[in-house]
């Protein structure tokens, strides 16, 4: 039976020392909303876990900051509630607030953190899609040093991430999207406390009525999260309209089939990916889904 030790380090350095010393046996504990469930279920990937390192008290992992160059950073242990209520984020990344507010239930949003949401490796992580659309980078610390990794790059596949056992996600950085119109749409099996069946984060930069930049990040669609460059390209220089976005949705769904191959779920996911991409783009552009 799995025996666990609980450790509460006083500094980031101390936390990194523990992660180094117990590499492979220590797990950072922030909100615990995924970790505790997985431990109770006896998941194999946690079979070696012996130490829970409580990182909640570490100042570096909290709060929002904006630099003069317009880049924003969020502490990895910031709760979904704090993200969804942040005035700064509501201005610079409103779809991230929307995604954070759609996670689980109020209790889960109060405990669960954005860093955990990314590092847990679930393709259904709600904040992952806006982070991908934002081009967010994750600042990873270890005793060996510091590196920055684009959010999608830490994903290997469902539930698997490219984090070294001694590495800790400390902050998430991205550029302001205040100039963009953004939207996050989520499909679950009920209205609250639902895991995404699929979701889409979309951001459009409009200049003189035309689309100057487009970012589309669908969730639960690709084995490894990412944007959809060929679909985004269709939009550049175009005037937003439902038909254009419909075509763009089809391109995303085709891309899904190309990246995943035809699967048991394709008959459902293909039309719905088309619909949700179109819906997210329409919502971002502020136009009706139906002409």
């Amino acid at each position: 039976m799995q025996q666990l030790q609980y450790i509460k380090p006083k500094s980031l350095h101390e936390a990194l020392q523990y992660l180094h010393e117990y590499a492979g046996q220590a797990k950072p504990y922030a909100g615990g909303t995924d970790l505790m469930v997985q431990l109770r279920a006896g998941e194999r990937r946690l079979a070696e876990t012996r130490y829970l390192i409580d990182i909640n008290g570490l100042a570096e992992l909290h709060g929002f900051a904006m630099k003069a160059d317009g880049t924003i950073s969020i502490g990895a242990a910031t709760s979904h509630s704090a993200v969804s209520q942040s005035a700064l984020l509501q201005e610079h990344a409103p779809f991230l607030c929307a995604a954070a507010s759609s996670v689980g239930s109020p209790q889960i949003r109060n405990m669960g953190t954005v860093g955990g949401n990314l590092c847990n490796g679930s393709p259904a992580a709600d904040t992952l899609s806006p982070f991908v659309a934002l081009g967010a980078e994750i600042e990873l610390h270890s005793l060996r040093g510091l590196r920055s990794v684009p959010a999608p790059d830490i994903y290997i596949g469902a539930g698997k991430v490219k984090l070294a056992p001694d590495e800790l996600a400390v902050r998430i950085h991205f550029s302001s999207a205040a100039a963009y119109n953004t939207a996050f749409v989520k499909l679950g099996r009920r209205k609250a406390l639902a895991i995404s069946r699929m979701n889409v984060a979309a951001a459009l930069l409009l200049e003189e009525g035309r689309i100057a930049d487009a970012r589309i990040a669908p969730g639960c669609v690709f084995p490894v999260p990412g944007r959809v460059p060929m679909a985004e390209k269709l939009l550049l220089g175009q005037t937003p309209c439902a038909h254009l976005f419909f075509e763009c949705g089809k391109a995303v769904a085709e891309e899904m089939n190309a990246r995943t191959g035809l699967r048991w779920s394709t008959p459902y996911k293909q039309p719905v990916a088309e619909a949700l991409v179109q819906r997210a783009l329409c919502a971002a552009a502020g136009i009706a889904e139906e002409e």
């Binding site: 499909l187 099996r189 069946r197 048991w264 008959p267 459902y268 039309p271 719905v272």
Partner: peptide, 15 residues
């Protein structure tokens, strides 16, 4: 009347 049942007229499963 779940998502797949309504859209496709059947449930989907991995099996």
């Amino acid at each position: 009347a779940g998502l797949e049942q309504v859209l496709l007229g059947k449930k989907l499963s991995k099996g």
